[in-house]
């Protein structure tokens, strides 16, 4: 029997949902019009944002958060949305090198700014020392908060390459881990710092 991985399951279920959504439009049902035009037209603005050193010219709805734009329109789904209220930290990205909650920042406010997401950490197969240390020290458990933890940790090491455990805890105080694997995260970050490989 073919083993079913979680990824495969999600992808196939997703496909199922997609095909049911597409069906009415194939048969020319009025549902098509509803799907394609939003019920309320929201104001839109053209912006330019640099994400992981790549410039993007986009037209965004004013109400779209940066997290929504990154995930739904730039397909950078490494950034997660947990609470969507600036309470959990899963959506942490760097805006002009500083960690922020991308769920609580509008895309229009990021016009002309530079953003780094978790996708910008590795260079090909060459992982960021933090990512390597997260693997070696079992930082992630369920993994949902991990990209946010990585971005807060990256911001810390960028300006403080050899932090104390206390400084690490404080820098990560805005990132909640539902699995409560905080000690392993702190351990990972201290190990990455000790290795002294400042990310280029």
């Amino acid at each position: 029997m073919k083993p079913i991985s979680r990824r495969l399951f999600i992808e196939e279920t997703g496909l199922g949902i997609l095909s049911t959504t597409v069906l009415p439009s194939v048969t020319g049902s009025p549902v098509e019009a509803q799907v394609n035009s939003p019920a309320v037209s929201a104001p839109r603005t053209k912006i330019t944002i640099k994400v992981n050193d790549v410039s993007h010219h986009l037209e965004v709805e004013d109400r779209w958060t940066l997290a929504e734009t990154l995930r739904d329109h730039l397909e950078l789904t490494g950034t997660k949305i947990g609470c969507d209220r600036g309470e959990c930290g899963a959506c942490t990205v760097l805006l002009n090198e500083k960690p922020i909650y991308s769920c609580s920042y509008l895309s229009v406010w990021a016009d002309g700014q530079s953003i780094q997401t978790v996708e910008g950490l590795a260079h090909g197969d060459h992982l960021d020392p933090l990512q390597q240390a997260f693997i070696e020290h079992d930082g992630p458990q369920c993994g949902y908060c991990t990209s946010g933890q990585l971005m807060s940790a990256r911001a810390l090491l960028n300006h403080n390459p050899s932090p104390t455990a206390k400084e690490v805890r404080r820098a990560l105080s805005g990132n909640i881990c539902r699995c409560s694997n905080y000690n392993r995260y702190v351990e990972s970050i201290l190990a990455a710092a000790k290795r002294g490989q400042k990310h280029a």
Binding site: G86, G89, T92, L95, K98, P99, I100, Y101, S104, Y105, S152, A155, R170, A171, S173, G174
Partner: peptide
Amino acid sequence: VATPQIRNT
């Protein structure tokens, strides 16, 4: 106040 992410904005 709050967290590093909140204090940054």
